[in-house]
Amino acid sequence: MQKRLKTIVTCLLIFAGVQIHAQITIQGFTLTTEANSTKYKLPGKQFYPLYVPSGSEFMDDKWQLGYVILENKDRYDSLRLKFNTYKNEVICLHNRSMSMIELDKNVIKEFGFYSVIDNLMSFQKLQRKDDPEDSHYFKMLYDGKLKIVILYQTIEKKVPAYRDKLGFMRNTSFEMRTDYYLIFPGNDFEKFKLKRTPFLNLFGVKKKEVRKVLRQNQIRLFHERDFIRAIGVIEKELY
């Protein structure tokens, strides 16, 4: 009888303990002073990956080391990040609980990956003039009065029917699209392709002057780096 009573009391005590701690869940690790920081804590929500039979919802499926800068200029380094190009969100791996967190976009100003060749790949949150409510992360190629950015977007595309690895019939595939934008002063976004004529057309009445500047500086527009160089020169000469 006493044994039973003890068991019941123990169970009740455990239950009471669980009750009080239920609101704050700390998964699989002990919360220590390591959690302390004077920075604004990284906020986000649990990320649930999609089942993607073909392609990927991320820019890169592997976790990459990177940094995040918040709107209040607080900076977090050495985070394990993935860029979800389907939702245009940054996913962070919480090292101690191994949970995947979709970081709140309203808090983040910039994030980036440290690549192996020390070439920083940085993404900035930008809002288009025509849609200030909707912000996206753009890869920054050139950041001055004029900006060249890339928007990586993964879309679910209709494809001929196929059987996925689980044996189910599917007719969609996740494919990543790369859109280049030139941002003029005044937050004016213009989409362009890496081709000479469409690029020159973006400058409207200044087209002739741009052409002249490019000729004078012997810039031929073939690769991404040529366009970045061209914008640097155009900005210096004409803006």
């Binding site: 704050i24 998964q27 959690a35 906020p43 986000g44 929500k45 649990q46 919480h94």
Partner: peptide, 14 residues
């Protein structure tokens, strides 16, 4: 009301 598991630094809420 937030109907997601929320994280704030090292703590989380259901």
């Amino acid at each position: 009301a937030v109907y997601f598991k929320r994280y704030f630094g090292d703590i989380s809420f259901d």
